[in-house]
Design a protein around this nucleic acid. Structure first.
Lengths: 205, 205
DNA sequence: AGAGAATACGACCGATCGTGCTACTTTGTC
DNA sequence: GACAAAGTAGCACGATCGGTCGTATTCTCT
C-alpha cells in the first residue's frame, strides 16, 4: 500500500531562511531573469553559502517553482487584497488595475511585475516553470474576468461586451505600462494605463 | 595632422559570415534572451569557433548592439515595408498592426517579436543595449503615431483623440498578443489583438 | 538529557562562461 | 605575383555555472 513518506517537520529557523531566499529570488529575478539569476549570486545576496541554499531546494528548477509560488503570494497581498475593498463590478475591476499599477510604481519588485517579466522570458521555453507562470496568469485573468461579468450583472457594462476581449485589452495596457515604464523610465506610461483602463470600461457600458 | 587610417575594404566572405552570425543571434535571442544567449552556443549554431566569431565583434555587448541593428532591419523588411502598400491614415495604422501580428504568427523570430522580448528582458537593466532597444521602440511608436496623426488630418479619427494614448493602447494589445500567444500557445490571442485594434480605432472616429 | 533529523558550511566537481593570444589560410590591392 | 590585411581555428586563461559530499552545528521531540 502507499506509505505516508514520514515527512520531517521543518525547523522554524529553516523556514525563515527559506522564506528569505524566496523573497530575494522573487525580487532579483525581475531584474536578472528567472534563468539569469544564478544560485551563487542569490546565495551571496541573502548571506548564505551555495550549499546552504541547496539544503532547501534540490535543483534550480525546484527553486524557480517555489519562487513563482511566493511571487503569487506577494501579488495577492499587494495587489489583489487591497482591491477587495472596492465594491464588486466595474469599480473593483478598475481597482485591480490601479493596485497593479501602484505595485509597479512602488517597486514591490525592483524590475516590475514578476509575472510579466517571467512570462516574457519563459513564454517560448516550454517546461514546468512556464506552466506555473501560465497558471498564475490564468488566475489573474480569471479575477479580472469575474469582475467584468459581475459588472454585466450589475448593468454597469453592456452584456453584449465580450469578457475575454475586454480583459485582454486591459491586461495589454497593464503589460505595456509595466514594460515601458522601465524601458523609458517614464511614469507617464502608468498614467496612460490608468486612463485607458477607465475609458475602455466606460466605453463598454 | 590627422592621418587617414587607410582602411581596407572588409572581405566579402567575412561580411557574409557576419551577417549569418547576426541573423542567428537575432533569432536565438528571442528564445534564450539577449543576455542568456552565449557566444559558445551561437558559434556552434552558425558552425564557427568561438574565436572565429570574436574576430567580428570585440565584446559581447558589441555583438548585442549589432544584433539590435539587424533585428531592426528584419522588422523593417517584414513588418514596416509590407504595410506601406496600405493607404496612409487609419488603414495603414491597422496594416502596421496586422503585419506585426502576422510576423509573430509566421515565427519570423522563433520566440516572437525581437524588441518585445528584448525590452522585457533589459528594461530594468540600464546600459547601451537597453538604450538601443528603447530607440528602436521609439521609432516604432513614431511610425504608429505618424499614421494616427495622418488619420486625423484625413478626418478618419477625431482630432480630439490623443495620439500618444491611442498608440499606447494599440501597442499594449500587440505586446499582450505576442507574449500570451507563446505563453498559452493560443492563436486566439492574436485574433483578439486584430479585433481590438480595429475597434479601438473605430471608436476614435 | 539524549537522539536524530534539520540546517548550514567549505571544499570540490566537470562544464561552460566571456575573452584573449598565436598561427595559418584566404583574399583584395598595388 | 607579392604582400598586407582579413578571416578562422586552436588553445588556454580565470571566473562562474549548477550541483555533490562529508561534516559540524543546532533545533525539536521524546
Amino acid at each position: 500500500m502507499s506509505v505516508t513518506p514520514r515527512q520531517r517537520r521543518p525547523r522554524a529557523d529553516g523556514e525563515r531562511s527559506r522564506q528569505r531566499i524566496l523573497q530575494a529570488a522573487a525580487e532579483l529575478s525581475t531584474v536578472e531573469g528567472l534563468n539569469g539569476l544564478s544560485i551563487g549570486r542569490l546565495a551571496e545576496h541573502v548571506g548564505m553559502s551555495k550549499s546552504g541554499l541547496y539544503a532547501h531546494f534540490r535543483s534550480k528548477e525546484e527553486l524557480q517553482l517555489a519562487t513563482v509560488d511566493v511571487a503569487n503570494e506577494i501579488l495577492t497581498a499587494e495587489v489583489v487584497l487591497p482591491a477587495l475593498e472596492a465594491p464588486e463590478g466595474s469599480q473593483r475591476l478598475i481597482a485591480f488595475c490601479d493596485t497593479f499599477l501602484a505595485h509597479v510604481e512602488r517597486r514591490v519588485f525592483p524590475g516590475g511585475c514578476f509575472f510579466t517579466s517571467a512570462a516574457a522570458e519563459l513564454s517560448p521555453r516550454p517546461g514546468p516553470v512556464r506552466e506555473a507562470i501560465a497558471q498564475g496568469y490564468r488566475e489573474w485573468i480569471g479575477l479580472l474576468g469575474e469582475q467584468a461579468d459581475k459588472a454585466k450583472e450589475l448593468g454597469e457594462i453592456d452584456v453584449r461586451a465580450e469578457t475575454s476581449q475586454l480583459v485582454f485589452e486591459l491586461n495589454g495596457m497593464l503589460l505595456a505600462a509595466n514594460i515601458f515604464y522601465f524601458l523609458f523610465d517614464d511614469a507617464a506610461q502608468l498614467e496612460r494605463a490608468r486612463r485607458g483602463v477607465r475609458e475602455r470600461i466606460l466605453n463598454s457600458s
